[in-house]
Nucleic acid binder design. Structure first.
Lengths: 414, 414
DNA sequence: CTCTATTTTTTCGAGCCTCGAAAAAATACT
DNA sequence: AGTATTTTTTCGAGGCTCGAAAAAATAGAG
């Protein structure tokens, strides 16, 4: 059962709250923090004085707009970039990237690398990941001790505890406990996250007005992924990262999916499925391993030019996505959707059939009011989400230790 | 954003925690409460002394088993039945029932009534509800002032704030703010809940070992409903009660559903759908308004006796439920399922096709390990859930005021 | 150039709350 | 009757937040 609140949790939680307020607002004054947190000025004063003393926050120049006002000018509080650093590792199909990010969220250094994830042996894949991290540590400019957290993201299913990759389309291997491996290797806390969840976190930081408490990020790529934020919290399954939107059933006994089953949404809307339909290869054709972004763009161009199998392929993708979203909306009610990935650039071809399908479902009662946004480039989003994930971990678990250990106050996405 | 913790919230939250511990454990000693809440003995002593002084808790006889032990005997703490009462109102097809329940959860009095919900005018329906509540208030044995909360449950969609029924299959009328209406009428806080959510709450109280943090309650009745508990909390949509499992899409452009759309799970698995298929009326046949429980039982008997359209109807129901559950499990991972309602008594006819379908979905990877439980009688469950819903409201909002107003510590189902 | 109004931030004492340790209470065992 | 054991209460210490007041820092008025 949930547990009582001990007296010392109070300060820790309010510390975390202040740090979160600064991370969100950028350069808020103490008065502004008091307003957003609902705590008294005295408390904010005491806490921020502590945090400055510990080198977590720093005072910045009084904000420009405020100097027009009378009275004592506000002093902005900001995150001290040197308080800590975090590392992000993003593993996607044939591509591995790492970045070092300071406490204020700026990228310090990065490295990217192509590799053949589909055919690599298990050990080689793990080795590449540890090696790329190690190379960052060897950078003489980087203070190794400052690295407080490593966040990995991978396309595929991870476990709820964010320790391991359970299954991924980018490698034949399963159940790799990347988080444990990196922790053992470098002695730094690490987590293994799902790529679409990180996209959702990044969207929330990028555009908190549109993506606030309830929204959906859908990755339209070789496969179909989803990151879901409900009531301000990242939605995950009970055992895994969950949210396997791409593998909801669209057509019982339908098209062959990359996962080996039939009729999944992905088997109609993934790049390989669009490709298969556009090339009229039949729904039983084995999914191809990869379709280049250029090929997909050519497909979209062809579909825009004339009515033919390409256009029909996108229509089928839209239909599958629409019925899938309709079923999802039946469960969670409609919410804003962000379409991310290379096929999001072809969303104009997908949207009509999608809206038509969704209008025929219970969740689509107000289908014209459901709004879609597109973002063709998923990698920067994933990296950004990872960074925020790692940074907020440092905020909460390291700079306000114990605050999140019990109960659930103040938990929120990222 | 989430808000800081003020000093006085501390006591309120810990009060709520102590009350919750007593409600859960029945007659725990102070020492046991200290252990489950993690608070110190001194704190528990102080809080329980307050609660006893306020008439919320009462000391009961030392528990029998403990007297075998040495030392000072434990004193059990229990809920004082006279601390408050709550009222539950359950509105289902052609049936209205009300009950008064004391603070310890015992039914004090009840009344049940048949009425024709499908044809009643809006005002008459509302009038029946207020009248049946008023009659309970007129009971001379009932201290009107003790009634602290009214919880209504209805089959259909309610809003997230638990104020109104938005849509229901039992009446043609929509958007009835029952909670507001009863509050205005009697001056007592009221909520309007979804029936399947109440079932889920009741299951959790009845069998916390099986139904703890993640489980699904599915109502197999004229329509198909679902109550979903994830991570220990009732899952609702962003705007409505959500969880409209019955209206996830099973077959695009498939059988005609009671909701007017096509291919919903319910259009294959609802009683009217099983009836329609068993009578070979075709998937376009208008759903019948009601099928009696006796007719459904006769159908099940016929299906068990011989291979024919009845058996096929149950097979189709199982298939729809299986694919629907498969899609749901793709999103949330598998969880224990309780099948409730008259058709749960025919689950033996449904299960084989259900398991076969689920095995073909992503969520059904370990389909043999997914466990189903059946409970043919939904009404007692709904009433029980309503009672617990109302009682825990009193625990938290009235006897520990302010505790839940900010943040989210200690929130949990019911 | 000084004084006043205004706004932000800090300081200080009061009031709560929880905690640990010790005391008190209540029983079983010897 | 005395001792051991377990539960519950008491009491002082320490920590935290709050409100009020003071201090700090600036713009505008005269």
């Amino acid at each position: 059962m949930s547990v009582g609140i001990r007296h010392d949790d109070l300060r820790r939680r309010n510390r975390a709250m202040v740090i979160a307020a600064v991370r969100r607002a950028g350069q808020p004054s103490r008065t502004e923090i008091a307003a957003t947190t609902g705590l008294s000025h005295s408390t904010i004063s005491a806490i921020s004085s502590d945090l400055i003393g510990e080198g977590i926050l720093a005072e910045s120049k009084p904000s420009e707009a405020a100097s027009l006002k009378r009275g004592r000018p506000q002093v902005g509080l900001s995150l001290n970039p040197e308080a800590a650093t975090v590392m992000t590792v993003v593993l996607s199909l044939n591509f591995l990237s790492v970045a070092v990010i300071d406490y204020a969220g700026q990228v310090i250094s990065e490295e990217q690398r192509r590799l053949d994830t589909l055919t690599m042996p298990r050990d080689a894949l793990i080795g590449e990941c540890t090696a790329i991290v190690r190379r960052r540590f060897e950078d003489p400019d980087l203070d190794v001790r400052s690295v407080a957290r490593i966040a990995l993201a991978i396309q595929g299913i991870t476990d709820t505890r964010s320790r391991a990759m359970l299954w991924s389309p980018i490698t034949p291997h399963t159940d790799i406990a990347f988080a444990d491996i990196l922790e053992a290797e470098f002695g730094i806390p690490a987590t293994m996250e799902n790529d679409c969840n990180m996209m959702a976190i990044a969207l929330r930081w990028r555009d908190p007005d549109r993506y606030r408490d309830d929204f959906i990020a859908i990755l339209l790529s070789h496969g179909i992924g989803m990151g879901l934020v409900l009531k301000g919290e990242l939605f995950t399954g009970t055992h895994s990262s969950g949210g396997e939107f791409g593998h909801m059933i669209h057509q019982p006994n339908g098209a062959l999916c990359r996962c080996g089953r039939r009729g999944c949404v992905e088997a109609y809307a993934g790049n390989y499925a669009i490709w298969r339909n556009a090339r009229q290869m039949g729904e039983d054709a084995e999914p191809v391993a990869d379709v280049s972004d250029a090929d997909m763009r050519a497909l979209a161009t062809a579909a825009r030019e004339r009515d033919g199998p390409e256009r029909e392929a996108y229509r089928k993708a839209g239909e599958a996505l629409g019925y899938g979203l309709g079923s999802l909306f039946a469960l969670i009610d409609p919410a804003p959707v962000a379409m991310v990935g290379v096929s999001a650039a072809a969303f104009d071809l997908i949207e009509p059939a999608l809206r038509q399908a969704i209008a025929q479902t219970a969740g689509g009662q107000h289908s014209e009011s459901i709004s879609f946004d597109t973002e063709p480039n998923e990698l920067p989003l994933i990296r950004e989400g990872c960074a925020m994930r790692a940074l907020t971990f440092v905020d909460q678990e390291i700079f306000a230790p114990g605050a999140q250990a019990r109960g659930s106050v103040g938990k929120s996405v990222a």
